[in-house]
Design a protein around this nucleic acid. Sequence first.
DNA 1: TATGCAATAGAAAACGATTACTATATTCGC
DNA 2: GCGAATATAGTAATCGTTTTCTATTGCATA
Lengths: 354, 354
Amino acid sequence: MALQGKRATISDIAKRAGVSSATVSRVMSNPSYPVKPALRKRVLDAASQLNYKPNIFSQMLKGSSSREIGVIIPSITNPFYAQLVSAVERECLERGYTPIFCFSQNSPELETRHLEMLERKQVEGTLLSCVHLNDAFLADISARTPAFVLFDQTYPGYEGDSVSFDFFGGGCLATKYLLECGHRDIAFISGPIDRYSRRQYFDGYKHALKDAGLRFNNRRVVLFNDDIENASSEYDYHCGQELASLLLSSEYLPDAIVAVNDMIAIGAIRKLEQEGVHVPTDISVVGFDNIAISSLVSPALTTIDQPAVETGRLATRILLDRIENKPVEQGQIILQPSLVERESVRKVHRKVRR
Amino acid sequence: MALQGKRATISDIAKRAGVSSATVSRVMSNPSYPVKPALRKRVLDAASQLNYKPNIFSQMLKGSSSREIGVIIPSITNPFYAQLVSAVERECLERGYTPIFCFSQNSPELETRHLEMLERKQVEGTLLSCVHLNDAFLADISARTPAFVLFDQTYPGYEGDSVSFDFFGGGCLATKYLLECGHRDIAFISGPIDRYSRRQYFDGYKHALKDAGLRFNNRRVVLFNDDIENASSEYDYHCGQELASLLLSSEYLPDAIVAVNDMIAIGAIRKLEQEGVHVPTDISVVGFDNIAISSLVSPALTTIDQPAVETGRLATRILLDRIENKPVEQGQIILQPSLVERESVRKVHRKVRR
DNA sequence: TATGCAATAGAAAACGATTACTATATTCGC
DNA sequence: GCGAATATAGTAATCGTTTTCTATTGCATA
């Protein structure tokens, strides 16, 4: 392999093989065009001698597709997104695409910056877990991008392709389960309810309470409002500890807690245990996400499963199908929550509902 | 914003503004070239009316730099790599580069495939946590890539830039700490010792034992040999459980365990507790990695810190400095281990060494 | 023996931006 | 007021590939 300073071009090969550059191009990338076997061999030999690698920018300029997609998520240290990203990558790999992952850190400015970068790079499509709450902005972007799928964090009333999750149903399910287990005084703990998903989850909680004929007690909603844009597990964990402290300082403890995510639940449980309040004996907790750790902590966390892999896979499929102009059976998917029963909830008295 | 089917080119703008395309180019991307204010304004207006976005492929073809780098790691669901990736991204963002993340799943074939893809894309540099154990291969790649830095998993005797970790020292440190705490019968548990890093860690363990005048007992080395290429946390966790079972089935339990990583340690602890063996009362455990969860489990894991953020940051800096031909003070960095004392090790009797 | 079509290959025109040359018009130093 | 330097803008070449035209064969059909 001759590695002179510069990389060999198609005309270097042409010269060496004694043919025109058109012929070289046809040998290299148009298998259907007839070229005499002898010539073809000469070209192939010359190419390998010169260690020829086509210049991708030139090919792109001539209009071939880059097979790159952009993927924007809030944070990769959040295990939910790590799993999601893993699924996206696998799907892309199978279909010959390269994903470019970007992390918005829950910052609209960063999200915009990444979106602009992806547009500059002329990716063929974008997958976005969106932290913008701006309708016009989204319309703008999705019009400009060849293909565009919202996932995880979607936008209420968004008309385009999306793979979202029934957060409302999730909030309901978690709360109803606690009610069924005989708990009545159920608190809700969360970081800032900024995102749509959290609001929905909270609404689900309230709905389930109301549905059970219980009045909603605002003092049982404990929020940790901190506008540090930080989506790390550690942060959520500490947030959970903080929230548990707040709860511990109230007049009396609730029967149970609905936490807005697993990490917060785990942080809260840890703090409670530290203060001598045992889970689930003294208080029950249900989380949300079903990240890997949740089954590994003690007590293992009862939680609502949010299917990260499924979300990533479906969203990627829709996006790639759009890019390739394949028919998309369903452009708007809403994944349903399911309960994962483990050890953090105590059944006070059986109260089976039909 | 007029969005006709095709995107506007530089000559569309030239036509609309009544100037030559050279002038447009100079206005758009050569601020130092003098252009009359009136003309400049005409060009700028035309550009914004046509919503002009330069064609990046054309720019690349003319030799401007892509400011893209490739980053290959085994798996993103491993929290150590998630943190590392996060640091790489941050560093890239600051310096205006776009990282393309690829996951090798510990498969040399996939690693090769990704490396080839990155070469095709003509990235300006590559960061690799390498699963190949092939010298020639590495030499080949690093010669072909404009800039190349090995990190995390490096290669013994590798001459190029690298940011690695003193795994041997880590194994020593973990073992010595247990010895200092008064433990004598110390087991080593691990998944397959395939990677260089694991072998080194294991060697450190043996060295510390020998150094303390203890004979190395091969029956205290418990390995889980499974060539499933799976680097997920869940897998390691189950691997840890399996290893603990193996240990439990031996004639009598060791005093302490050195685990090859945190996830395996956590899995083992969980299994031990399930079988009524309490950590650290009955047996002590020290992990390796210091992933976020390790401080959150109960008992909190005593472990060796492997600085993920530092590794990612330093490796990226070296790579980008090379790309930009800045002087690199130190091309080969070996990060040192440090012990994080938490709750999973019991001090049998104080035996202070100087 | 024309005629037409497939096989084969080269010349040259794209793709869109940058930039090395030119070519004017100004302006400056003296 | 004259040559030299500078400001300003256009022409055309260039980056490396693909692809549309052409052009020449060879061969089968009528």
